[in-house]
């Protein structure tokens, strides 16, 4: 997969919106439904203006019925449409968990391969806006646990622009995590929207000394840490997992086989996290390549508190990534 040749600067929010617009333009079967996606313009203004552009049949405001409208999205997908269902935030997703886990994830298998469920479910997630315990969840591991789902995480502007378009080509249910704290952040996005048509983990920065394996909000933090590490002569490779299920084991193993060290970074709390799985895979597949124990920097095991200083302390920050990476590489 070659790097896009031309790029422009966009906010993460605008990149998401342009991908939605492309999706709606490309395929008449695509429609967006979610709470406040139309008249309000999206809780985070991601779909602002789309109602005016595409009309109420394709940009559907729905009542506060997460189970109802996610289930309806699944049904519409079964019956020939390509719905994009927005759950306003991951925090409300458990109200629709029955539909996702018991219907979307199982129908292909239970029906002996007869039923495809090409639904895309987007949800905004993450921590960092002082929204306290019920509105700051990092539940990627919860969804990544379930066979039958494909779970994507948008950790870069490039993916904000392109990932949805790939997800819509999938015959199976796809969950996409977007990160609220990144919405205003500007970054480079490719103008060529055809270049990404398969999704695997991606090496965001190459290096030979240590693999920092992360996803979502961890990607830019890890890249910033890698830049700092470079100043002291440590060349960190940063891997953006992008797909949390099924995991791209090949890219992980190839990187660790090269660097012989791994630091796993994510916001979700540490126990039974994506990093737990990545760590186990490294042990199973390339243990003898390791020159140091695999370490994890994950969320602290606590409901997220309101005060900023405590909230910041809940998740890995750039400085910790630098410190721990140095420790692994230099045996400090």
């Amino acid at each position: 997969m070659s790097a896009p040749s031309v790029s422009i600067k966009l906010s993460y929010r605008e990149a998401l919106k342009q991908s939605l617009r492309d999706a709606l333009k490309n395929d008449d079967r695509v429609f967006l439904m979610g709470e406040d996606v139309g008249r309000y313009g999206g809780a985070f203004a991601v779909s602002k203006g789309l109602l005016q552009e595409f009309g109420a049949d394709r940009i559907m405001d729905v009542p506060l019925s997460e189970s109802g409208f996610v289930g309806a999205g699944i049904g519409a997908a079964l019956n020939g449409m390509r719905p994009i269902v927005e759950i306003m935030t991951v925090n409300f997703s458990l109200l629709a968990f029955d539909q996702i886990a018991n219907n979307a994830a199982t129908l292909l298998h239970m029906s002996g391969g007869q039923l495809n469920v090409p639904v895309v479910i987007r949800m905004s997630c993450g921590i960092g806006r002082q929204l306290a315990a019920q509105h700051s969840h990092s539940w990627e591991p919860l969804f990544a646990h379930i066979p039958g789902l494909k779970v994507l995480s948008i950790g870069t502007h490039e993916d904000a622009r392109l990932m949805l378009l790939t997800a819509l080509k999938e015959p199976d249910p796809v969950i996409i995590f977007e990160y609220t704290a990144m919405l205003n952040l500007e970054g480079e996005v490719p103008t060529d929207t055809i270049s990404v048509d398969s999704i695997y983990a991606k090496v965001r920065r190459t290096g030979k000394d240590i693999s920092i394996i992360t996803y979502g909000a961890g990607v830019y933090k890890s890249l910033a840490a890698a830049a700092e590490l470079a100043q002291i002569g440590v060349e960190a490779e940063v891997i953006d997992l992008r797909v949390l299920r099924p995991l791209d084991e090949k890219t992980i193993v190839a990187s660790v086989t090269k660097t012989h060290r791994a630091l796993l970074v994510e916001d979700a709390c540490q126990s039974i996290s994506v990093s737990s799985e990545v760590s186990a895979r490294i042990m199973e597949k390339c243990f003898y390549e390791l020159d140091a124990p695999v370490l994890r920097l994950c969320g602290v095991e606590v409901p997220i508190p309101y005060p900023k200083h405590l909230e910041d302390a809940c998740i890995p920050q750039k400085e910790q990534i630098v410190t721990v990476a140095k420790k692994i590489v230099c045996h400090d």
Binding site: D57, S67, G71, A72, G75, N79, N102, N103
Partner: peptide, 19 residues
């Protein structure tokens, strides 16, 4: 799952209406 298929049924009918 008791009642789990009702939302799906609505979605199937919605798709028919749209198409």
């Amino acid at each position: 799952i008791v009642a789990g298929h009702l939302p799906m049924a609505v979605g199937m009918a919605l798709a028919d209406k749209k198409m």
